[in-house]
Simulated assay, not measured.
Amino acid sequence: MKMKFIPIVVASLFAVGVHAADGAIKDGTYRAETVNFDDKGWKPFVEVTYKDGKIAAVKFDYNSQKDGHLKTTDVEYNKKMKAASGTNPTEYTVKLAQGLVEKQNPEGVDGVTGATHSSEDFIVLANAAVANAKAGKTDVAKVE
C-alpha cells in the first residue's frame, strides 16, 4: 500500500501556521486511517489523544477487512510474525505509541526492527492525526 505523504506535510505546515495564533491544541482524540485496506486485508489507524496541549496517549493498530478484528488480537498472526521477524503487532504497536508520547513528534519516533512497513504506516498516520489536532479538526484524517 502506498500512502501519499506530501499532502500531509503540506496540510501539517498549513495547520501549524493557522493554529499558531493561539498555540493551544484542544484536548481530545484525533484519528487517522488509510482509505483502503492493504493487499493482506488490513487497514491501519492511529488515534492520538491530547491532554493539556500534549500527546498523552496513542493507539496504533490495524482492522481486518474480513471481520473488523484488530491485528493485535489475532493470536495466530502474532505468533507467526514473531517467529518470522522477531516482533509482532502486540509489541511494535506499543513501542511506536510510546515513542510518540515520549517524543511528542511523529518524526522523532524510531522505527521498530522487523516491522519496517508498519513503522512507516505509523509515522504517516501519526503525522495526519497530529495535523488534524493542530488544525482543530475532529474528523478522521483519511490517508491514501
Rank of each mutant, 00 (worst) to 15 (best):
Phe5Met: 08
Phe5Asn: 10
Pro7Glu: 05
Leu13Glu: 04
Phe14Ile: 15
Val16Arg: 06
Gly17Lys: 13
Gly23Ser: 06
Ala24Val: 11
Ile25Gln: 02
Asp27Ala: 14
Asp27Met: 12
Tyr30Cys: 06
Ala32Leu: 01
Glu33Trp: 13
Thr34Lys: 14
Thr34Asp: 07
Asp38Gly: 13
Asp38Tyr: 09
Gly41Lys: 04
Pro44Ala: 01
Pro44Gly: 02
Phe45Thr: 05
Val46Lys: 14
Val46Thr: 10
Thr49Ile: 10
Thr49Glu: 06
Lys51Val: 06
Asp52Ser: 07
Asp52Val: 08
Lys54Asn: 02
Ile55Met: 07
Ala56Tyr: 12
Ala56Ser: 07
Phe60His: 04
Tyr62Phe: 15
Lys66Ile: 13
Asp67Met: 13
Asp67Ser: 09
Gly68Glu: 09
Gly68Leu: 03
Val75Cys: 07
Val75Lys: 14
Val75Ala: 13
Tyr77His: 11
Asn78Trp: 05
Lys79Cys: 05
Met81Lys: 15
Lys82Trp: 10
Lys82Phe: 07
Ser85Glu: 15
Pro89Ser: 14
Lys95Phe: 12
Lys95Arg: 13
Lys95Cys: 09
Leu96Glu: 00
Leu100Tyr: 01
Leu100Asp: 01
Val101Ala: 04
Glu102Cys: 09
Gln104Pro: 00
Val109Gly: 10
Gly111Arg: 09
Val112Arg: 12
Ala115Phe: 11
Thr116Ser: 11
His117Thr: 14
His117Val: 15
Ser118Lys: 02
Glu120Gln: 11
Phe122Gln: 03
Leu125Gly: 00
Leu125Thr: 01
Ala126Gly: 05
Asn127Asp: 03
Ala128Pro: 02
Asn132Arg: 15
Ala133Lys: 08
Ala135Gly: 12
Ala135Ile: 13
Lys137Asn: 02
